[in-house]
Amino acid sequence: MDALKSAGRALIRSPSLAKQSWGGGGRHRKLPENWTDTRETLLEGMLFSLKYLGMTLVEQPKGEELSAAAIKRIVATAKASGKKLQKVTLKVSPRGIILTDNLTNQLIENVSIYRISYCTADKMHDKVFAYIAQSQHNQSLECHAFLCTKRKMAQAVTLTVAQAFKVAFEFWQVSKEEKEKRDKASQEGGDVLGARQDCTPPLKSLVATGNLLDLEETAKAPLSTVSANTTNMDEVPRPQALSGSSVVWELDDGLDEAFSRLAQSRTNPQVLDTGLTAQDMHYAQCLSPVDWDKPDSSGTEQDDLFSF
C-alpha cells in the first residue's frame, strides 16, 4: 500500500511530472533526481522514447528462454528487412502500455495491464526491452520488442512496467475491499429498513384510530445511509488515497477476473515476472533518469539497429 499512497501523494503535489519523457535525446524537461521519484509518476504514465523492432507469436506467457528466442527472431526479421526502425513513445501506467508513433502521434497499440504476463531486458541484446501480452483480438500470446538507447534504459522500462503492474494490483485490492464494505453496509441498511417496515402498523389501523404518522421519526431512520450505499452501487469504487486528485481509476471486468485468478494461483500475485536478476534490479533502481541518457562506457552510441 505504500507504493499506492506515495504515488497518489506525488501526483497530487505535481501532476505535471508524469508528462516528462525519457530517452528522447535531450528533449525532456528537468528530471527527478532518483528512481523513487520517477516511480511516483506512474499514475498518469511515464513516457519512454524507443524504437519498435516488431512482434512475434509465442506459445507460453512467460520465460527467459522463451523471450530470448522470440527477441532473436524479431531482431533477425528487422535486420533482414533493412528498413529504419519506427520511433515510438511507450506510455507506461497502472492501466497498461500505450504505444504511439512519434511522427504521426497515431495510436499503435493499447495493452491493458492485466494482459501483460512478462517483461524483460534481454541478456543477449542488452539494449532490447520486450514484453509478452495476450492479444486483445484473440487468445494468442505476442512478444513485442523495442530497441532502447542503452542497457540502462531497457532495464528502466522493464522495472517501470513491473512497478505499474504492482500498483494496478494494489488498486484492485483496495477497490475489492471498498466494494465488500459497501455491499455489507448496503445489506445491513436493508435489514434495518426491513425491520422498521415489519414493526410499522398498517396504514388502515392508523387511520381508524385517528393517529398521525410521525414524519420526524421517519426522517431519523437510516434511510439516507441505505440510499447512499445503493444509489451508486454500479459505480466502481476508487482508492481513497486518490481522493481529490485528477486521476480516475476504473476497474473493468477483465482486470477484476484476471487479478482474482492471480490472487488464487500465485504466492506473490502482485509481482510481474521479469528477466532481471536481483543485481540488475538493484543497479537500475539506483540510477537517476539522467543516467539513462548518458552514453555507455563501451563506446559511442549508434542510432541504428545494427549497432548491437
Rank of each mutant, 00 (worst) to 15 (best):
E40T: 14
L272E: 01
S49W: 10
L147K: 04
S16D: 10
K123N: 11
Q86I: 08
D273A: 03
T120V: 08
R73H: 13
G190V: 13
A219L: 01
S297F: 11
L53D: 06
M281G: 06
Q163H: 05
E177A: 00
E65H: 11
K204E: 10
L242H: 04
A7T: 09
P269N: 04
D2N: 12
E59F: 13
V271G: 01
A241C: 00
D234G: 02
G63K: 03
Y114M: 00
L206P: 04
K51Y: 14
L85N: 11
Q302F: 06
K79T: 08
L57N: 07
T218R: 10
N211L: 05
W35N: 01
P237M: 07
E250K: 09
T120D: 11
G244T: 01
V207A: 15
D291K: 05
K62I: 09
S117T: 12
Q139A: 14
M233A: 06
P239E: 07
C286S: 00
C286E: 04
V248T: 09
T218M: 07
S140A: 08
E142C: 06
E257I: 02
S224D: 05
L66A: 11
S14N: 05
V248L: 01
V207W: 05
N229M: 01
D293N: 00
L203G: 02
S21N: 14
E188Q: 03
Q264N: 04
D198M: 10
R27W: 08
P94K: 07
R261Q: 10
S288Q: 05
D304Y: 09
F259W: 09
G194S: 02
V161E: 00
N229W: 00
L107E: 09
K79E: 06
Q285Y: 04
A162G: 10
A228E: 05
H137M: 12
K72Y: 15
A241P: 03
K72A: 06
A70P: 04
K72H: 11
A7H: 15
S224P: 05
I116C: 06
T274D: 04
T225Q: 10
I74E: 11
A3T: 01
V128L: 15
L17C: 12
K166N: 13
A185F: 01
A154P: 02
R151W: 12
M233Y: 07
G194W: 11
I132C: 11
G25N: 10
E216I: 01
D198K: 13
G190Q: 06
L66N: 13
F165S: 01
D280F: 05
L103F: 12
F171E: 00
V92G: 11
L50Q: 04
S14W: 01
H125M: 07
G26C: 12
G24R: 02
E257G: 07
L47M: 14
A68N: 09
C148H: 03
L66Y: 08
V167D: 04
T230H: 01
D122H: 12
N105G: 01
S16Q: 10
Q302G: 04
I71E: 03
R196A: 08
V157I: 00
L90N: 09
T277E: 07
L212F: 03
N232R: 09
S135A: 10
S260L: 00
S21P: 09
D191S: 08
L147N: 03
I132W: 09
D101M: 04
L251A: 00
P239S: 04
T149P: 15
S186N: 07
E40W: 04
T277C: 05
K62W: 07
N110K: 13
A130V: 08
E257D: 04
A156T: 02
S112G: 08
F171G: 12
L103P: 15
L251C: 07
H137K: 14
F129R: 11
P94R: 09
L43I: 06
S49Y: 07
R9I: 15
L242Q: 10
K51H: 10
V226N: 15
G82A: 13
Y118E: 03
S227G: 02
T149N: 03
C199R: 10
N268Q: 03
A18Q: 05
T89S: 03
S14D: 13
T231L: 05
N34G: 15
S93F: 04
S243D: 06
L31A: 01
Q163V: 01
K72G: 06
S186C: 10
E109T: 00
I97Q: 07
E216N: 04
E235H: 03
T120Y: 15
E217Y: 13
N268F: 02
N229H: 03
Q139P: 15
D183N: 15
C199Y: 14
A78I: 10
K294G: 04
I98C: 03
L262A: 06
D214C: 07
D296T: 07
A10K: 12
V157F: 06
D2T: 05
P61D: 00
I71T: 09
N105E: 11
P32F: 14
I98M: 05
Q285A: 01
V247G: 11
A18Y: 09
S245W: 01
G244W: 03
A263P: 01
G8A: 04
K83I: 12
E59M: 11
S81T: 07
A3S: 10
L203P: 08
A154V: 07
A156S: 04
W292I: 00
I132K: 07
V167Y: 02
R9P: 12
V236K: 07
S112K: 00
T38N: 14
G82N: 03
